[in-house]
Lab assay of single mutants.
Amino acid sequence: MGSVRTNRYSIVSSEEDGMKLATMAVANGFGNGKSKVHTRQQCRSRFVKKDGHCNVQFINVGEKGQRYLADIFTTCVDIRWRWMLVIFCLAFVLSWLFFGCVFWLIALLHGDLDTDYKDDDDKSKVSKACVSEVNSFTAAFLFSIETQTTIGYGFRCVTDECPIAVFMVVFQSIVGCIIDAFIIGAVMAKMAKPKKRNETLVFSHNAVIAMRDGKLCLMWRVGNLRKSHLVEAHVRAQLLKSRITSEGEYIPLDQIDINVGFDSGIDRIFLVSPITIVHEIDEDSPLYDLSKQDIDNADFEIVVILEGMVEATAMTTQCRSSYLANEILWGHRYEPVLFEEKHYYKVDYSRFHKTYEVPNTPLCSARDLAEKKYILSNANSFCYENEVALTSKEEEEDSENGVPESTSTDSPPGIDLHNQASVPLEPRPLRRESEIGSRR
């Protein structure tokens, strides 16, 4: 089982795998120059863009038009607004034209077009017409509009002379109601789609790998820009990579689940303020055997998904993003964004995407760390350097704002901070800030 798991979770494809794949392509008759073999020097295209759209195009789909027309309502909801407006206008105009032609044909076959009612006051002739005051196609078209929109100006009306005319008036009224219901329903469904809710759900630009509770963890940050909550919010993550099976089958995008606390339930989050999602790199993680150097040379993509129900409509929305291997910062942490004021908490989104480097973060893999092949620094050293990194950030910001350097908390000259780390230190809580992250 261990060997199978290692093969499945191998992220960085070796040169031997690339040569094996190329040999397979030639042997199977696919070596026509169009096949692409992804190596370390040639990274694959992003499968999920940063804005959440999937970078996929469908080609050679059989009976595409028929399949889309069979699900016309979903098609109308998914198309762009400009095409929705075109369909909206065409549906009414074509129905008016169709029934206008029908009423014109009825008048033509009944002989109503030969009668001039402007110079004739004989009401008996008017009563013999199928539709009064309809003696041309324009008049028939206007009567069709008046019937379907129930305008009723009063000059044109159907008589009991022709039952077919009466039937067409009733039929057009029913068709008009159906068109109204369909168009209004599609427009309302399109307006109520929770897709735009994703514009106020954000992911951090970069993911980070750092120590948390004595273990290497992959972390990324999510935030909600609205005050309205995302009900039943939960997160998922998958690692996408290519691999070759033991039988020699090439899988271009193998999807591997990344555990973010599904078993323990901590994948469900209360997204009021930005939260750091934590994936513990343990023996079940696809990143277990990867060191910093392996991450730098790897070719994979981590897709992160945030799902929840919109509070206003109770409709489920899904926000997506992805991180390539070069977008994962090893040995970094996110800057705090949640600050405790006197009577409330304040979230500073200008710090949302910012990170700071944490010294002495192990550069080895989580496996080597678990097997004690890498000796961690003293816990006080880690905490102290973590505090120094934050303090230096604040000093830089104070210097930019014009604060005198004498007010900063610099260490005395001639003292090495790293050498001082081995000395037991008193706890130094942050002056006014605390970061709330997901705790395992």
Score class of each variant (00 low, 15 high):
Phe270Gly: 04
Ala140His: 01
Ser377Asp: 13
Ser95Tyr: 02
Leu430Phe: 11
Arg428Gln: 11
Gln57Tyr: 06
Arg40Asn: 13
Ile436His: 12
Leu287Tyr: 01
Ile164Val: 09
Glu433Phe: 08
Glu249Trp: 05
Lys342Arg: 05
Tyr334Trp: 07
Tyr117Leu: 00
Ala70Ile: 03
Leu306Arg: 01
Gly29Phe: 02
Ile59Gln: 15
Ser3Gln: 07
Ser406Gly: 11
Asp348Glu: 07
Ala192Met: 15
Phe58Gln: 14
Arg268Phe: 06
Lys241Ser: 09
Cys319Thr: 13
Val260Tyr: 01
Gly29Asn: 13
Ile178Trp: 12
Lys241Glu: 06
Leu390Met: 13
Ser285Asn: 00
Glu396Gln: 11
Val134Glu: 00
Lys128Ile: 09
Thr313Trp: 11
Lys342Tyr: 06
Ala186Met: 09
Ser45Asp: 14
Asn28Arg: 08
Thr75Ala: 09
Val4Asn: 11
Lys125Asn: 05
Tyr349Lys: 07
Phe98Thr: 12
Asn28Ser: 13
Ser246Thr: 11
Asp284Gly: 09
Gly402Phe: 10
Gly29Ile: 06
Ala192Arg: 03
Ala233Leu: 06
Phe143Tyr: 04
Ser392Leu: 04
Arg226Pro: 10
Asp294Phe: 00
Leu21Met: 03
Tyr288Asn: 00
Glu307Tyr: 07
Arg197Ile: 11
Thr409His: 06
Phe167His: 00
Phe155Leu: 05
Val187Tyr: 07
Tyr68Lys: 11
Thr138Asp: 02
Lys20Tyr: 06
Val403Lys: 06
Glu311Ile: 06
Ala22Met: 05
Ser132Glu: 11
Leu290Ala: 08
Ser246Gln: 11
Thr407Asn: 03
Gly308Thr: 10
Asp299His: 08
Pro286Thr: 00
Ser204Gln: 00
Tyr323Asn: 00
Ser35Arg: 11
Val278Met: 07
Ile275Trp: 11
Glu371Gln: 05
Ser132Tyr: 03
Asn7Cys: 06
Trp83Arg: 08
Arg431Ser: 15
Cys89Phe: 04
Asp17Gln: 10
Asn135Ala: 12
Asn297Gln: 11
His332Ala: 09
Asn326Cys: 11
Ile179Gln: 12
Glu232His: 13
Cys43Glu: 15
Val388Ala: 14
Asp112Ile: 00
Glu387Trp: 00
Leu225Asp: 10
Arg44Tyr: 09
Ser124Lys: 05
Tyr288Ser: 00
Thr407Pro: 08
Glu387Leu: 02
Leu390Asn: 15
Leu230Glu: 04
Glu395Lys: 03
Cys217Glu: 04
Asp121Lys: 03
Val187Leu: 08
Leu363Ala: 13
Glu247Cys: 11
Lys196Met: 14
Val48Lys: 01
Ala421Thr: 08
Pro286Trp: 02
Gly214Met: 08
Tyr323Gly: 00
Cys76His: 08
His234Asp: 06
Thr75Ser: 11
Gln148Pro: 05
Ala325Asn: 10
Ser35His: 09
Asp284His: 15
Thr115Glu: 12
Ser321Tyr: 15
Gly223Trp: 05
Phe141Leu: 03
Phe352Glu: 00
Val48Asn: 02
Gly52Tyr: 00
Gly248Thr: 06
Glu400Ser: 11
Gly176Cys: 02
Asn135Asp: 09
Asn297Gly: 08
Asn32Asp: 11
Arg226Gln: 05
Lys195Leu: 10
Asp114Thr: 14
Gly414Val: 11
Leu369Ile: 14
Val126Ser: 07
Val278Tyr: 10
Gln318Tyr: 09
Asp299Ala: 07
Phe58Ala: 13
Phe73Val: 14
Asp263Phe: 04
Arg212Ile: 04
Met309Lys: 10
Lys292Trp: 05
Thr245Phe: 07
Asp51Thr: 09
Ser406Arg: 08
Leu271Asn: 08
Asp78Gly: 10
Asn224Gln: 14
Thr316Ser: 12
Leu21Gly: 11
Asn297Tyr: 06
Asp213Met: 13
Thr159Asp: 05
Ser322Met: 00
Lys190Trp: 11
Val208Lys: 00
Asp410Val: 05
Cys54Arg: 15
Asp160Met: 03
Gly176Leu: 03
Arg82Gly: 09
Tyr288Arg: 03
Ile244Asp: 14
Glu397Thr: 11
Ile11Val: 14
Leu90Gly: 05
Lys20Asn: 13
Val169Thr: 06
Val134Asn: 00
Glu16Gly: 05
Gly176Tyr: 02
Val169Ile: 08
Val158Tyr: 02
Ala370Leu: 06
Val358His: 06
Phe137Met: 03
Asp122Cys: 00
Asp120His: 00
Leu113Glu: 01
Val208Gln: 02
Ile59Val: 09
Ser10Met: 10
Gln293Lys: 04
Ser273Cys: 09
Asp284Val: 12
Ala312Pro: 10
Gly111Asn: 12
Val102Leu: 06
Thr361Met: 15
Arg82Thr: 06
Val175Glu: 03
Asp180Cys: 12
Lys196Cys: 12
Asp180Arg: 10
Leu225Asn: 10
Ile277Arg: 01
Lys34Gln: 11
Asp289Gln: 12
Val12Gly: 15
Arg351Pro: 06
Asp263Cys: 10
Tyr356Lys: 15
Ile275Lys: 06
Ala389His: 15
Thr245Asp: 11
Phe99Cys: 00
Gln57Thr: 09
Asp78Phe: 08
Asp299Trp: 06
Ser322Tyr: 01
Gly65Pro: 15
Arg431Trp: 05
Ser124Ile: 15
Asn259Asp: 09
Asn224Trp: 04
Val403Ser: 12
Lys34Gly: 14
Cys76Met: 08
His229Phe: 10
Val170Trp: 04
Phe99Gln: 00
Arg5Lys: 11
Pro362Cys: 02
Ser136Arg: 04
Thr39Lys: 10
Val347His: 04
Lys354Asn: 12
His38Met: 10
Ser365Arg: 01
Lys20Thr: 07
Ala22Gln: 12
Asn378Val: 08
Asn32Ala: 09
Lys393Phe: 11
His205Tyr: 07
